[in-house]
Simulated scan of single mutants.
Amino acid sequence: MLRLTKVELRRLFARRMIKVGVSGLFLITALLMFATWLEARPASESEQRAAQQQYEFAHREWVSNHVTNEAQCKADWVKQPDPKPKVEDMCAYPEPKLEEFGRPQQVYAEVMPQQLLGLSYLLLFAAFVLGASFLAAEFSTGAIGNWLTFEPRRLRVYGSKLLAAAIGLLPVALVVFTVAMLGSYLIIDQLGNTATTTGKVWGDLAATAGRAVVLTALGAALGGVAGLLLRHTAAALGVAMGYLVLVEAIFGNLLVKVQPWLIKLNFDAFVRHDTTYYVNQCASSSDGGYLCNSIEKTLTFEHGAWYLGILAVVLLLLGGAVFHRRDVS
């Protein structure tokens, strides 16, 4: 098995699409660093003047209306159905501050977690496509039939190919996340604020990146399964895009209660170590109206880990069963 995996790794990195895909990932990472620099630049003089004008206008409005607005909000709060937020939270109208206007200063501890999540989406998608192309090419060229004449034990061939796809994308993901974390830190340290970047923050960021690396490897393996089942990279990509549009975007938005069973939210829960989502809770009010509150709920890391783990095992077993029994010609 180890010998087969080494051979598959060499074949993986010999493919042109893998080289192009990995180069594209590094290019996107460089562009991300450039975008971070653009966001972290201090505001220009014209932007500072505009921010000052916006602040002065907002402050005048606050002085004139905040008492009336708070009184009206408290009257509306009484009519809200239970459960309702605290009146202090719902009806807070704090005095505007100048630093709230204009371009905010970039804070590394606040920017980086979202940046890592966005990178994890990119790497998962890229790994899925590259893994699918790796195995689909074996069928479209007929190479899989020739390979099975040298190694007829199909499950060993199946396992070695998926393992090579997963292992091959691991160092790529590690480099991308390392460059992103350190590059962004150096940029924001010069132009923004890194004072809140404590040891705990570094530990949390490293753990987030580590979980994303694991899912990148898993995505490459599952992409390989899709390539094996569909025998064409475009078909695997079409299925993935169809799922994202029809299930995640349309079905998930129409039926918000199914969100805990969608892949994206469980992916977020695993990478971020818990995530939140919102559902609407509606009830009739005493005056005959119909009011809705948006309730925040938490999807735990454990739920995401079990969900993704079970889904991966089912798909890997399905792929193995199909490859073991189906004609490869």
Results as ranks from 00 to 15, higher is better:
L2K: 08
V7F: 11
A14K: 03
I18M: 14
V20Q: 04
V20F: 14
G21C: 08
S23Y: 05
S23W: 10
F26V: 07
W37H: 13
L38M: 08
A40V: 00
P42E: 10
A43E: 13
Q54F: 00
E56M: 08
E56T: 10
V63E: 15
W77Q: 08
K79G: 00
P81T: 07
D82S: 11
K84P: 03
P85V: 02
K86P: 02
C91F: 11
A92F: 09
E110C: 00
F125V: 15
A126N: 01
L130V: 07
F134N: 03
A137V: 02
G145K: 13
G145V: 08
R153C: 00
V157F: 05
L162S: 01
A165C: 01
V179F: 12
L182C: 01
L186R: 14
Q190D: 11
N193F: 00
A195G: 01
T208I: 11
A217W: 06
L222E: 04
V225L: 04
A226M: 10
R231F: 05
T233S: 09
G252I: 11
N253P: 00
W261Y: 15
I263Q: 01
K264Q: 12
K264C: 00
N266Y: 07
F267D: 02
R272K: 15
T276N: 08
T276P: 00
Y277W: 12
Y277D: 01
Y278Q: 11
N280F: 09
Q281N: 07
A283L: 08
G288Y: 07
G289N: 12
C292D: 06
A305M: 14
W306L: 15
L308M: 12
G309N: 07
G320F: 06
H324E: 03
V328E: 02
S329Y: 13
